[in-house]
Amino acid sequence: MVVASGVRIGWADLPGRVRDDIERIVGGGPVVAAETQAGGFSPGTADRVRTAGGRRAFVKAVTPALNADSAAMARNELRISSAMPPAAPVPRVLGGFDDGEWVVLVLEDVAGAHPRTPWVEGEIRGAAAALRDLATVLTPSPIPDLPAAAERLAPAFGRWRDLAGAPPGDLDPWAARRLDALRETADRGIAALSAGRTVVHADLRADNILIRPDGRFVFVDWPWGCTGPDWLDSVLLAINVIVHGGDPGPLLDGIDPAITVGIVSGAAAYFHHMARLPPPPGLPTVRAFQRFQGESLLPWLRAALDG
């Protein structure tokens, strides 16, 4: 398994004025402990903090000077997370700010662990049930002015056309022979994205999920939130299960298999295309991670298309 993460700054790297503002939001005096969290793609902070008074929070902070895209994503996440209804199984927002230089989110510190990878059957079933509940709470969308999933994902999922010009040997031989079929299936998946009015996460992986000690699932990291079909997050999480070698069946129950194959095909095209680009600032390992995911989806697609 290829693991990707940003080259993070930590709590101590934040300007004093930013730390002071965060401490006011958390309450309980100065921060006396900060534990940087591994994983994720942002070069900004991702710290579990504790103040002198015992209060805890999860702090994310980034500046465009580190990575402009990461700052834009943080702004999106601050807006989307702050507008989530209380019943949504997402971290509660304690506060945040965007001062034009630093974008900061201060979130509930959720006690829990990520699902195990390779995925295990019980946690796949638990995730499937939790996603059905999440979709119920977020339909119709309670958050105004979100982009549509079709608008957000269609360009990414249409990349088989770009890969048709890949140099010989640069693409898996089976995929090179089946490019027309892969493109057609991805187009069907793209067409299905236009339905639905549910707020979807649109970037679900095991590292964007926490399981509380009581077994409840919490879905974290919402910068890509958009509106789309209520099944979309289940199919996207199924992709993560496939990549890790698990059985995505419980996540795909009741979803049109042709749509599932189309979404997986589109995701594979996206990963293969992105893996061929230079790494963005502060994210040196992301291209290898994307290549690994794209290649891991091809055996599943081959079985689906060729039987």
Score class of each variant (00 low, 15 high):
121 E>S: 08
210 L>Y: 07
235 V>I: 13
166 A>Q: 10
44 G>M: 00
272 H>Y: 13
298 L>T: 00
15 P>R: 01
203 D>Y: 05
106 V>D: 12
182 L>M: 12
166 A>K: 11
67 N>M: 05
243 V>L: 05
294 G>Y: 03
240 N>G: 15
268 A>L: 07
264 V>W: 13
134 L>Q: 11
245 G>F: 09
300 W>Y: 14
197 R>D: 15
180 D>W: 00
159 R>Y: 05
301 L>G: 10
265 S>V: 06
38 A>Y: 07
46 A>W: 04
18 V>G: 11
209 I>W: 04
280 P>G: 04
276 R>W: 06
36 T>W: 00
53 G>T: 09
238 A>V: 01
99 D>P: 12
146 L>H: 12
215 G>Y: 10
77 E>D: 12
80 I>N: 15
119 W>P: 03
187 D>I: 00
303 A>H: 12
141 S>I: 01
156 A>P: 00
214 D>M: 02
25 I>W: 13
83 A>T: 09
200 V>G: 05
94 L>T: 04
90 V>C: 11
141 S>F: 01
142 P>I: 01
240 N>F: 03
283 L>H: 10
267 A>W: 04
91 P>V: 01
279 P>V: 10
84 M>K: 05
102 W>H: 11
102 W>Q: 04
108 E>M: 06
198 T>R: 11
104 V>M: 05
35 E>V: 09
151 E>W: 14
244 H>P: 00
95 G>D: 08
112 G>F: 11
285 T>S: 15
201 H>Y: 07
34 A>K: 03
276 R>S: 14
213 P>A: 10
257 P>C: 09
167 P>L: 06
219 F>D: 07
16 G>A: 14
255 I>P: 10
286 V>S: 10
234 S>T: 04
76 N>F: 03
233 D>T: 06
120 V>K: 14
242 I>H: 08
210 L>H: 12
116 R>C: 02
169 G>T: 07
210 L>W: 06
171 L>Q: 04
76 N>M: 03
99 D>R: 04
188 R>C: 09
69 D>A: 12
46 A>C: 09
243 V>T: 08
50 R>D: 04
92 R>Q: 10
195 A>I: 05
71 A>F: 03
29 G>D: 01
124 I>A: 08
30 P>R: 15
200 V>N: 07
173 P>N: 09
42 S>G: 08
247 D>K: 08
168 P>W: 13
249 G>R: 14
67 N>A: 02
165 G>P: 03
295 E>D: 15
